[in-house]
């Protein structure tokens, strides 16, 4: 019974623990500014983790999310740069967002195609996608950090909706929608099933290729969304802005209690996982602990969290 509680709510318990730690060792940690930043950063990582979670449900993997996010931020900056003189600002923003999300969908579609039709293992397919996204990101602006020409866009990153930062509010809304899809629609059942027993799903007449394509494209779109908010918040598009985020996303998913073998899990755990990672990061900055040590903390927490959640299967 105790073990059941740990497994189901473990992530939230760890989150509470980490927050308590912050309260203890960081004086004045919980001021509105800090909380706001944590929520924004958690939302950005949370979008990537959401896409990653869906992919992992189907027993897949997406290593391209970090670079897709960076690519998205670059596309937004570039679109603004090239269009802001010729086109009204509102339209520029719309075009920029569409291009960024579209590119994310494209890379995601490419990943999905490689996995479903070319039967390439997801690990490798998404590494390819990762490199391609990276290349595109660098190519567009020659690797130069570029400020957003339409500064009003920054409000998307820094503004608030009923005191909740917009990125976070958006994430929550999207997650609620997907929660409904996962629990209350046939597609949701099919997603879990594809990861749980691909043969049984095939035998039941379900088109697993379609399910996986949708998932990988969604992962690309979510990663691009994360990049969008990142650009809005920092006010810059830079090809390395989300470097390494794919590993953090996977870490968030695993800390969130989702099994890497797929077939089961909740999407809320990874959000908590993302928040845990960001809070830890802030604690380290706050106490001026060597930033390099942050990876140590994250690494250790990762190992512990996974150990707690991997007890399930036998041989």
């Amino acid at each position: 019974m105790g073990l059941y509680v740990l497994r189901r709510f473990g992530t939230f318990i760890i989150l509470a623990g980490v927050l308590a730690l912050a309260r203890l060792i960081c004086f004045g940690f919980f001021n509105p500014f800090n909380i706001s930043i944590i929520l924004i950063m958690s939302a950005i990582l949370g979008f990537l983790a959401l896409g990653e979670t869906l992919v992992i449900f189907t027993r897949g993997f997406d290593l391209s999310v970090g670079n897709v996010a960076s690519m998205s931020s670059v596309i937004i900056a570039a679109s603004m740069l090239y269009l802001h003189k010729a086109v009204p600002p509102g339209l520029v923003i719309i075009v920029a967002v569409l291009l960024a999300l579209g590119a994310g969908a494209l890379i995601g579609g490419m990943n999905g195609f490689a996995v479903t039709y070319m039967k390439i293992p997801p690990f490798i397919a998404t590494i390819g996608g990762m490199w391609i996204a990276y290349g595109i990101a660098f190519f567009i602006l020659r690797g130069v950090p570029t400020g957003l020409k339409i500064t009003s866009f920054k409000i998307v990153g820094r503004g608030q909706l009923f005191y909740v930062p917009i990125p976070f509010a958006t994430l929550v809304v999207v997650m609620i929608i997907f929660y409904i899809i996962l629990r209350k629609t046939p597609l949701g059942v099919h997603i879990y099933a594809t990861g749980g027993n691909p043969y049984a799903v095939h035998l039941s007449g379900i088109n697993t290729k379609r399910v996986k394509m949708i998932i990988y494209m969604l992962s690309g779109i979510f990663a691009a969304t994360g990049g969008l908010f990142l650009a809005a918040w920092t006010g810059t598009g830079f090809p390395r802005s989300a470097e390494g985020y794919e590993l953090l996303a996977i870490a968030a998913v695993v800390i969130g209690g989702v099994s890497l073998f797929g077939g089961a899990g909740s999407i809320w755990g990874p959000l908590a996982g993302a928040t845990i990672l960001q809070v830890l990061d802030k604690i380290i900055v706050y106490r001026a602990i060597s930033p390099f040590l942050s990876q140590m903390f994250i690494g250790s927490i990762l190992l512990v969290a996974i150990y707690l959640t991997t007890r399930r299967k036998g041989i």
Binding site: V189, Y192, A193, G196, A200, V201, S204
Partner: peptide, 13 residues
């Protein structure tokens, strides 16, 4: 599908 419950399995597809 081992991770789904019986109801979901019965109506799979």
């Amino acid at each position: 599908v081992p991770t789904l419950n019986s109801l979901e399995n019965i109506f799979l597809g």
